[in-house]
Design a binder for these strands. Structure first.
Length: 112
DNA sequence: TCACTGACCGTGG
DNA sequence: ACCACGGCCAGTG
């Protein structure tokens, strides 16, 4: 029985982290896109939940590059500071006004 | 142990 | 055009 692998629940979570880590600098994606990339088995809500636990993930995942469908920084309150998410995105040349990414479609990156 | 919630999204009325 | 609801999995009270 070497390794029957007790792991099974974190399987899709790891996939989410892996995808998020692949997001190129200066690009962003949405929860729904990630969920779709994994397969419809996991819904976007689970992606958000996984992100919440992303602070314990190693290496750390760039959760600031993940926004909702509207390009709105809905998860900003879960960062160290409410403005940290915007700061990080602006550092990557992404313009944000009122927690809304400008030209969101242009910066959107679809998970492969 | 049961029930609700969560960084969402799509559809229906 | 706006409001309400269901769905998926795990964690928490």
């Amino acid at each position: 029985m070497s390794k029957e692998i007790i792991i099974r629940n974190i399987d899709w979570i790891e996939k989410i982290y892996d995808i998020v880590r692949k997001i190129p600098k200066g690009k962003v994606t949405s929860y729904g896109a990630i969920a779709e990339a994994i397969g419809t088995k996991t819904t976007a809500r689970m992606v958000g939940w996984a992100m919440n636990a992303s602070h314990i993930a190693i290496p750390k995942v760039p959760a600031h590059r993940v926004v909702n469908r509207n390009g709105l920084l809905t998860g900003r309150h879960h960062f160290a500071t409410p403005t940290l998410m915007q700061e990080l995105l602006e550092a990557e040349k992404i313009e944000i006004i009122d927690n809304q990414i400008i030209n969101f479609e242009k910066h959107f990156w679809k998970p492969q």
